[in-house]
Design a protein around this nucleic acid. Structure first.
Length: 221
DNA sequence: GCGACAG
DNA sequence: ATCTTGTCGC
């Protein structure tokens, strides 16, 4: 069993592989969203990855994987809990995306290695971290209108952005996962929030993950 | 020492 | 995270 100390050592090792500049294809055709759902009354979790056409945001493919949790929830070690079902779902994809949006932080993390970085260096693809709630860093004076941005600062480092994706809603927290700059990541997340607070990638993967969990539970009985 | 803490 | 209708406010 992986201990907390061992997990932190892995983070320290892998963080050096993170690329914080744009290494994207010339044109993004397929964008992926990832999410993990938790069953209320068991240890079951479902990893979910959806592929969308980047221009139309229509679903191209869906892959899910249900399994039991293998690691506890520890803030700062979140990725070790969600990586296993996501990697299993990743293996089931019929094609690979040009870019991925993870639910959770990237560099906006205590040790600069959140979920989006871990997934990015593991599958070696560009990944954006987009968290629904604050984890670390300070931000001030975020405007109220859609598109407003306030830098997330920790130890004098610009680790991410608070981004208001719709007027009069709570912000999301965007940071580099891998092979993408913060500016590009922020721009893309805003574009993906066509109608709701969260990017379509996150909303749709959440939906299919929930379905997969229900199907799996019904199949067991 | 205390508090804060992605999903 | 898990869950869910009605309700409040701009």
């Amino acid at each position: 069993m992986l201990t907390e100390d061992a997990a932190i050592a892995i983070q320290e090792e892998l963080r050096r592989q993170v690329i914080t500049t744009d290494e994207l294809p010339d044109t993004i055709k397929i964008i992926a969203g990832t999410d993990v759902e938790y069953d209320k009354d068991s240890n079951l979790i479902a990893g979910s990855i959806v592929l969308l056409d980047y221009t139309t945001l229509q679903v191209v493919a869906v892959a899910t994987h249900c399994m039991e949790v293998t690691f506890p929830y520890i803030p700062g070690l979140f990725s070790f809990r969600e990586m296993p079902p996501l990697l299993k779902a990743w293996e089931k994809l019929p094609l690979l995306p040009d870019l991925i949006v993870c639910d959770g932080q990237g560099l906006a993390h205590q040790r600069r290695f959140g979920m989006a970085c871990h997934f990015g260096v593991t599958v070696n693809k560009p990944v954006i971290g987009c968290g629904k709630t604050w984890l670390c860093g300070e931000y001030h004076d975020l405007g109220e209108e859609r598109g407003s941005i306030a830098p997330l600062i920790e130890s004098s480092e610009h680790i991410g952005n608070a981004l208001r994706t719709q007027t009069a809603t709570n912000p999301v927290f965007v940071s580099t996962g891998h092979k993408i700059s913060l500016a590009t990541a922020t721009d893309i997340v805003l574009k993906l929030c066509t109608q709701y607070r969260l990017p379509e990638t996150t909303r749709i993967s959440d939906h299919y993950g929930r379905l997969a969990l229900l199907e799996y539970k019904n199949l067991e009985k």
